[in-house]
Nucleic acid binder design. Structure first.
Lengths: 222, 222
DNA sequence: GTCTATAAGCAGATAGAC
DNA sequence: GTCTATCTGCTTATAGAC
C-alpha cells in the first residue's frame, strides 16, 4: 500500500526566512555586538550567553575561553579584507591610485559596518597575547599591501613609504570609530570620503578633483 | 660649649635631583603608564598603588574612585591641547594652512609622547559615563576648532567641512597608536609627517611640495 | 596620610546530571 | 549540548587603628 497519504499535504518545511543560526554563530553575533559596544574586558561571558539565548557555562562547549571568542571574531573579520587586498595586488591599476582607493574604501566599509570598535581592537592591549598572533600577522600583511599599492604612485624613500602606508592605515582605523558617532551623516558616504582622503594624503604633488574623479571611475573596474 | 662639631661638615640636604612628587602626582604618573600600556579595565588599583609606592587603599585618600583617576588624567592631558587650539584661533594664518599644520603637529606630539593609548581612550566605552562629560565636551570643542581652521582653506559645504574635520581628527588619533609601534622610525618625524598628511588630506586641489614647505615655515611663526 | 584587615560582589571557568 | 550548581580567585571600595 502506498504511503502517499502520510506525506504532508502542505509544502515540506523549508529554511525559515531568518537563517537558523547555530548556537556557535549566535554566540559570535552576540559577542561581536557586545564587544563593539561595551569593549572586550567590560563584556562578561554571562552577558554574551544571555544575548545568545544560552547559559553562561554552555559557552565553553563552543569555545575554549573568552579570548577564543574574540580571536575567532577577529580572524573572521580580517580575512575578507586580506583576500580582497591580495586580489588587488594581482590586478593592474586601471588608473594610478585606483587600487589604493578601492582598498581603502573596502576596508573602511568593513570597519563602519557595525563592528568598528572591534577592528579598532587591534591596537588594544588584550590583543598582545599569543592567541592573537595570527590576527596581528594579518594586520602586518595588510600594511605590506598598502605599501605595494602606494609605491608606484610616488617616488618615496623606503622610510617615507612605510610612514605613508602607516598613515593611511591610521586614517582608516581612526576614522572608523569617528564614523559611528556621525550617524547623522550619510553613512554610505563615509567610506568613499575616506578613500578620497587617503589618495590626497598619499599624493605628494596634490590630487585635484578631476584626477580624483578619474581614480574613482577606475576603481569601479576593480 | 659650642656645638659646632655637631653640625654636619657637608652641605645641608637640598632638594633631591628628581622632583619630590607628591603622592597624588605619583599615583597619576603610575596610572598614566599602566592605563596606557595595559588598558584601563585591565589595570587594577593594586597595580597602580604598587607602582606609586603606596598601598591600594591609600589611593582612596587621593581619589574618590578608579574612574576619578582616569578622569583627572584625561582632563590634564587634553587641557594643553585645547589651550593651544584656542590661541591659534586668535592668531591670523601667516600662510593658509599654517595654523592647521601647527595644531595637528602639536596634537600628534601630545599623543605620541608616551600617553598615546590614553588619549585614544576617548573612543573607549568606559568614557561614556557621566564622570567624563567634561572630557567629551573638550573633544567636541577640538573638532570645532579644526573646522574653523579648515573652513578658510577650502570652499566646502557644511557637511563636507564636518566630514573633513573628522577625518583629520581620525588621522591624528589613529596614527598615535601606530607611531608607537614604529619606534624604529625617527619618532620626532612622525608629528610633522602627520601634519603634512593632514594638510594634503584637506586640500581639495592638491598641495605640492613647495606649498607645503611654505606652510611649514609659516607654522614656525605661530 | 598611611597602614592592616576585610567586606561584598563578580569574574571566568569547571563538574557532573540529564 | 544544555543545564544547575559551585569553585576559586580577584576586584573595588570601606572601616578603623595608628
Amino acid at each position: 500500500m502506498p504511503s502517499h497519504d502520510l506525506s504532508p499535504p502542505v509544502a515540506p518545511p523549508v529554511a525559515p526566512p531568518v537563517a537558523p543560526r547555530s548556537a556557535r554563530a549566535e554566540v559570535l553575533a552576540a559577542a561581536a555586538e557586545l564587544f563593539s559596544r561595551d569593549g572586550y574586558p567590560a563584556t562578561t561571558t554571562r552577558a554574551v550567553a544571555e544575548r545568545a539565548g544560552i547559559r553562561q557555562s554552555t559557552l565553553y562547549h563552543h569555545f575554549a575561553s573568552k579570548d577564543d571568542i574574540l580571536a575567532t571574531l577577529l580572524e573572521g573579520i580580517v580575512a575578507p579584507s586580506l583576500a580582497y587586498a591580495q586580489r588587488l595586488l594581482d590586478t593592474p591599476d586601471p588608473v594610478p591610485g585606483a587600487r589604493l582607493w578601492a582598498l581603502v574604501r573596502f576596508d573602511t566599509e568593513l570597519l563602519v559596518s557595525g563592528l568598528s570598535n572591534l577592528v579598532a581592537l587591534h591596537q588594544l592591549p588584550e590583543v598582545r597575547g599569543e592567541r592573537f598572533a595570527a590576527f596581528r600577522e594579518t594586520r602586518c600583511r595588510k600594511a605590506v599591501v598598502y605599501r605595494e599599492l602606494i609605491a608606484p604612485l610616488e617616488p618615496l624613500t623606503e622610510a617615507d613609504l612605510r610612514l605613508r602606508a602607516e598613515l593611511v592605515l591610521g586614517l582608516v582605523e581612526g576614522t572608523a570609530a569617528v564614523a559611528r558617532e556621525c550617524a547623522e551623516q550619510d553613512a554610505a558616504a563615509v567610506p568613499e570620503a575616506v578613500a578620497d582622503a587617503a589618495v590626497r594624503l598619499v599624493a605628494g604633488n596634490g590630487c585635484p578633483a578631476d584626477r580624483l574623479a578619474l581614480i574613482r571611475s577606475g576603481a569601479r573596474l576593480l
